[in-house]
């Protein structure tokens, strides 16, 4: 694996499989142990550098690092670094001076973790940058698919919603392609990027047509501000939440069109009643809760592999006296 995880494209098929296998192993060990902590990253420092609010992702990374016995620093700088007065570079140099081994970075600007990686010696993990990528989300989604359906290769995965602004979609498209799944994007044309034709996916505007042949349907969050991006309605991406839900929402009726074994995924946070009906979100097909739990295992695997944890260290739970 490369030193940083900035994009799902950084992962070869072998890398991705290694992460998923390692996550599986770490999950098994954690389950078996009475104490959930492993000593693997003892003495190493992981910094959670969050320029954007994200309780879910930050706590997931924090828990992952702590379960590997790393020291965790939460460095939160809400809003852009510019509005805060300190540049990203200064922040990077500060972290460098503190001797961090890995920086987990969430930022509202696409590419900020890539910039950061040029200023720090440790590994950088992209925890979501602007509308670019969120590679660990894609890994945990693939992990979830593999657990539920036994494989990723050959699965027909339909990703529905605001692809244009979704870092989850970008990372999933790349990783699922690497792992051999067939991806179809479904969205109103306004929420698909120009140039999507060059992506390794199929594209459809018609959710109903795609659902019967989907093994996985992944619903993306649709942010309400998309209806008035610059504070006015003229450049809205769609006319109303009601119309969006009618055409692209996964309601109970639509979910019935899915094949028997198909699963419904959502990276959260959900807008219930908009892109997904509560009955579907909480139904038996839904993997929403598992995705959260799997996120910790996958992030443990990523930190473990990037920080070069020795393989034999897995399976040796931390000693009670440690």
């Amino acid at each position: 694996m490369r030193r940083h995880l900035l994009s799902a494209a950084d992962l070869t098929r072998e890398d991705a499989t290694l992460v998923l296998d390692t996550a599986e192993e770490l999950a098994r060990v954690s389950r078996a142990a009475t104490v959930k902590k492993l000593p693997t990253l003892r003495g190493r420092t992981v910094v959670n550098l969050f320029f954007e609010d994200s309780t879910r992702t930050r706590t997931s990374f924090e828990l992952a690092a702590k379960r590997l016995s790393a020291d965790v620093l939460n460095f939160s700088a809400k809003g852009s670094s510019v509005s805060k007065g300190e540049t990203l570079k200064d922040t990077a140099l500060t972290l460098e001076a503190m001797g961090s081994d890995a920086v987990v970075c969430r930022h509202s600007w696409s590419g900020a973790p890539a910039n950061l990686s040029r200023w720090v010696r440790g590994s950088v993990v992209n925890a979501g940058d602007g509308t670019h990528e969120h590679p660990t989300q894609a890994l945990l989604d693939a992990f979830t698919m593999r657990r539920r359906l036994g494989r990723v290769e050959g699965l027909r995965v339909t990703i529905v919603g605001d692809v244009l602004h979704s870092r989850v979609a970008r990372s999933n498209v790349l990783l699922l392609h690497t792992l051999g799944a067939e991806v179809t994007l479904v969205a109103p044309p306004t929420l698909l990027p120009v140039g999507v034709g060059s992506w390794p996916t199929a594209v459809s505007y018609d959710l109903d047509a795609v659902l019967p042949t989907s093994d996985v349907v992944m619903m993306l969050r649709v942010q309400r501000e998309r209806m008035s991006p610059t504070g006015e309605r003229a450049t809205a991406y769609f006319p109303s939440a009601r119309e969006y839900a009618r055409r692209y929402g996964l309601d109970v009726r639509r979910a019935q069109a899915l094949p028997e074994a198909a699963v419904v995924m959502h990276p959260g946070p959900m807008v219930r009643g908009m892109e997904i009906a509560p009955e579907v979100a909480d139904g038996a097909r839904s993997t929403v809760q598992e995705q959260v739990a799997n996120g910790v295992s996958v992030r443990m695997a990523v930190l473990y592999l990037l920080l070069g944890g020795a393989v034999p260290a897995i399976g040796a739970p931390v000693e009670a006296t440690a």
Binding site: S110, R167, P193
Partner: peptide, 22 residues
């Protein structure tokens, strides 16, 4: 200006992958 609100780079294949406004 109405077609370039928040624009960061040429709109096309690369911008779509980089998540930069076109």
């Amino acid at each position: 200006p109405r077609l370039t609100v928040g624009a960061q780079m040429n709109e096309g294949v690369t911008s779509s992958m980089l998540g930069l406004t076109g």
